[in-house]
Write a protein that binds this DNA or RNA. Structure first.
Lengths: 188, 188
DNA sequence: TAAAAACATTAACATTAGTTAATAAATTAA
DNA sequence: TTAATTTATTAACTAATGTTAATGTTTTTA
């Protein structure tokens, strides 16, 4: 749990006591590469904090290929919020890109914490703000850049993704076919 | 202000007194079609609640065309959050698609309200959650749909946009050239 | 209300990205 | 460690979208 504790200390003005209250609501889970934490159609019961490894959320598009909507490396939260908040079925899957350790908090504990532990509300706000900013630049790249430019953008701004994601997932995150990504890389 | 009052009553468990405290932080502004509330490069000082009309946020892409990131009709908030939160220059503009009336709250009053008026925090969370869900499906359409499918998606799910936005802005929201949108419409 | 400006449509052509298929390389499992 | 499986690359071809330019339509302004 030290990773989440460290994360809280770094990001919030929070007392030792409050940290303990938060931490006790989380539970450590290990997951092997390619295993699922959530399948589309199911209700998202947990939000996850990535301690080590890498997870992604993705869905299957009309042609049956998968599209990666979000990637979380260490020290980031992941979970399809609309499903979690409203407790309705998710159209996304969560799975492990690498073998990972995650801390999960249930919807029940989260709701309870939102009322009883002030820092959880702040944590949630920060999570939403981070998601907002990530989604913001994501939409911007789709609106204004072509496939090659989107790859170059990631190359310049997100070395971690370039380094740790296989071609296939990188392509599905950029929104192009893996063959197109190969072509793009060969021409740079 | 009745519109915002109504909105608060509808969406939050909030007392008359609290509503008054919130409302007094807002200021009514009128804006003519095509006028700007924010220009890229400036720091976003206000978040706006649309009372009537329609606003959009957009930026200029590398070829000098504009891309529309977000559209707000009546009873929705608008503002580039990353600029507002962090008080850093925005790369987006806000302008009026139609002649509009908006209520604005300053960053200063917002920050103050976040600490002193509980419902403002909830309002902010709901704003972030709404933005999350909107951005979520937006990214999904870019990842999994081609231009024609994105138009059809809007046609089925957002009649208001189809009805009230000119072709040019609709195309810039879908991420295609206006000529392409004309072609798509003629083939449906 | 007429003229000007902005916007929308259409068509021909150019470019980008998707598709298919074959092969090579890397990873996983026996 | 080898065989099997998955992933990555390449090339030829196809389909979709962008670009340019001409024309028609609508909106704005004088």
């Amino acid at each position: 749990m030290e990773e989440l504790e460290e994360y809280l200390i770094q990001n919030f003005d929070v007392s030792k006591n409050e940290i303990d209250n938060v931490l006790e609501k989380f539970q450590l889970i290990e997951i092997k590469k390619n295993e699922y934490l959530l399948r589309s159609g199911d209700i998202c019961e947990y939000i996850y904090f990535v301690v080590s490894g890498c997870l992604r959320t993705f869905f299957y598009n009309s042609e049956g290929f998968d599209s990666t909507r979000y990637i979380a490396f260490e020290n980031n939260f992941i979970g399809p919020l609309h499903s979690f908040i409203q407790q309705i079925p998710s159209n996304e899957n969560i799975s492990a890109v690498e073998q990972s350790k995650v801390l999960r908090i249930s919807h029940r504990d989260f709701k309870e914490g939102m009322n009883s532990i002030p820092v959880i509300k702040d944590l949630y706000i920060q999570f939403l703000e981070k998601a907002y900013i990530m989604n913001y630049w994501r939409i911007e790249t789709f609106l204004s850049l072509d496939a090659k430019e989107r790859y170059v953008y990631l190359f310049n701004n997100n070395k971690l993704m370039i380094k740790r994601l296989p071609n296939k997932i990188l392509a599905s995150f950029i929104g192009i076919a893996p063959e197109s990504l190969s072509r793009i890389k060969s021409k740079i």
